[in-house]
Design a protein around this nucleic acid. Structure first.
Length: 271
DNA sequence: ACCACTACCTGAAGGC
DNA sequence: TGCCTTCAGGTAGTGG
């Protein structure tokens, strides 16, 4: 997001190449034509979506799925880019020579759609999303209300984007560990003292992740091989069998499967 | 209504 | 060495 804003805001798209019919869903009709010639006015994030606002009243709704990334390089290359670069935009030369923006997504879980800027939040993918965890709308009171009466495990409830938007599997594991709450505990037992522990940990974990430049897949190596990703700070995720950082004589970090997803936790610390 | 489970996709990693 | 299987992730849709 920060790189996108710094390099692309105020620039005009002079070329758009669409190299496949779609990813998670088909691309909207006329995507290349509606991108070409538009000025990039700004960016906004909502949950795991990026919204790129264009002149002309369109916003581009982008989801990076799990393996997607936006590759920004100085313009000049005329080849088809790296493997799995499905969409490529080029901006005007201006003072810096322009940029080549590639949407690269090997596993094709990402998506790109268009939505009218004045109705962004009514898009079917955004309409039902819960509050932004870093916003004022997300509080002990609102999370408690969302979880009240739910018989599903808290792990699944935090992954449900209707309750809180933007948490993925890794962050939910980390957040529950930091709040010392068992992932198996039913959601309706969280409101109250446990929610009071959980909410600050959700905010702190996401704030740290954003400051560190985001997360990365355990099995997906960035092409630049750059280190310094948030994964180095994971306390439980991917650490099955390792010692729990908070207790000495416990059996260590366990891996279980909930809702078809891996959960990592310490059964002694998390209750 | 609520909740659990699966399909979608590709590449990495592990087993034989 | 190389083929085959398994697994990871987010979310819409299905089935219970």
């Amino acid at each position: 997001m920060r790189g996108l804003q710094a390099k692309l805001e105020g620039r005009r798209i002079v070329r758009a190449e669409i190299r496949c019919a779609g990813l998670r869903w088909p691309f909207p009709a006329g995507l290349a034509e509606r991108l070409s010639g538009a000025e990039i006015l700004g960016f906004r994030r909502r949950a795991k979506y990026i919204l790129m606002r264009l002149s002309g009243g369109d916003s581009v709704l982008i989801h990076l799925g799990m393996s997607g990334r936006m590759l920004i390089e100085p313009a000049g290359r005329n080849d088809s880019g790296p493997l799995h670069e499905h969409v490529m935009l080029q901006t005007d030369a201006a003072a810096d020579g322009g940029w080549r923006v590639g949407f690269v997504d090997p596993r094709r879980f990402g998506s790109i759609d268009l939505v009218r800027t004045d109705a962004e939040d009514t898009h079917r993918l955004l309409a039902a999303l819960g509050p932004e965890p870093l916003g004022d709308d997300f509080s002990v009171a609102t999370l408690s209300a969302a979880l009240a009466g739910k018989r599903t495990p808290i792990k699944a409830a935090l992954l449900d984007q209707k309750n809180v938007a933007g948490l993925g599997n890794i962050y939910v594991c980390e957040v529950l560990f930091r709040a010392r709450i068992s992932p198996l505990r039913l959601a309706h037992t969280i409101p109250g003292a446990r929610a009071a522990r959980l909410v600050p940990e959700i905010k702190a974990t996401l704030a740290e992740a954003i400051a560190a430049g985001g997360s990365s897949l355990r099995d997906y190596v960035q092409t630049d091989g750059e280190l310094g990703y948030f994964q180095h700070a994971w306390k439980v995720y991917g650490r099955e069998g390792e010692a729990c950082p908070l207790c000495v004589a416990c059996p260590g970090i366990q891996r279980i499967v909930q809702s078809g997803r891996s959960t990592f936790y310490c059964a002694k610390v998390q209750r």
